[in-house]
Amino acid sequence: MSTPSASLAQPPTAGERWMDLGLRRGAQALAVGVLVLLAAIVVEIGAVAAPAVRERGVDFLTSSTWDTNRDEFGILPHIWGTLYSSLLALLIGGTLGLAVAVFISQRFLPRRLELLLKNVVDLLAAIPSVVYGLWGIFFVIPAIRPFTAFLHEHLGFVPLFDERSPGPNMLASSLVLAIMVLPTMTAVSRDAIATVPRKLREAAFGLGATRWECILGVVLPTAATGVFGALVLAFGRALGETMALAMLLGNRNEFNVSLLAPGNTLAALIANTFPEAQDHERGVLMYAAIVLLSITLVVNMLGTAILVRSSRKAAGARP
């Protein structure tokens, strides 16, 4: 365009356009790369596990025996233990994390203290999980011992408390796991809460809402999608946690609903057994790994699907 006018507007140069195209192609290539990597992991582990999968089929998922000598393997207790510990951790850590997120973002504290607390919570994520394991062994397990004894003694008829170990147990593991998912939960839900526009909070206050009515009635519902996303991430984190649970859960390959009894998880089973496993057991462990991978993938995909749907709804998509 070379109309002689006073306008300062210029079309983008060829260089700018190339740059734009290059960036777009690069981003696409990286996105495809991530997918290829994921597929490669699934395929490779699947290949090693394939003989075991073919040989053992669904029985492997529903049996509760783990006996190397008799060559009998089943991972029902581990699937159960994985889901049980993660859900408990999510219940405790999710609630606590959301509470902390609200507490450090809704002006309950002076700005500086909010920032300090936020950083302290973020630091929790930097603690290696083996250290969490040690902390669990030397602090959490002894600390809750009188409490678990009390529960077992007085409420032993409830299945949740009918079997007790003074050492490693599900409750202690879930408590430690809850602390481990706390930073994820807090950081992500805090960000979600921070995106709630100020004018919405003003609207609530203008109608005569108290601070709590504003938080419960407006801020959290508006941030619900993000809070849900935080829960999904925290759940994924809990499902895959290995070291702390290998140290704290007691590695007992038995199905048990009691909170006070030991148990095992898929990740802990693999980590504890693999180093000394014989060839045929290795294949079996690969099968277990595939199951763990599937659980995490399904949880994350379901979570993402729900997130996308509800954020579209929240954005006010017209029917």
Binding site: P197, K199, L200, E202, A203, A204, F205, G206, L207, G208, A209, T210, G217, V218, P221, T222, A314, G316
Partner: peptide, 27 residues
Amino acid sequence: VAVRRYIGMVFQQPNPFATTVFKNVAF
């Protein structure tokens, strides 16, 4: 909070809550 229940306000920018029309009015 009590003051704001007797003295209502409409703001310069529309600021409906991210919920249904009905629940907005019923808030």
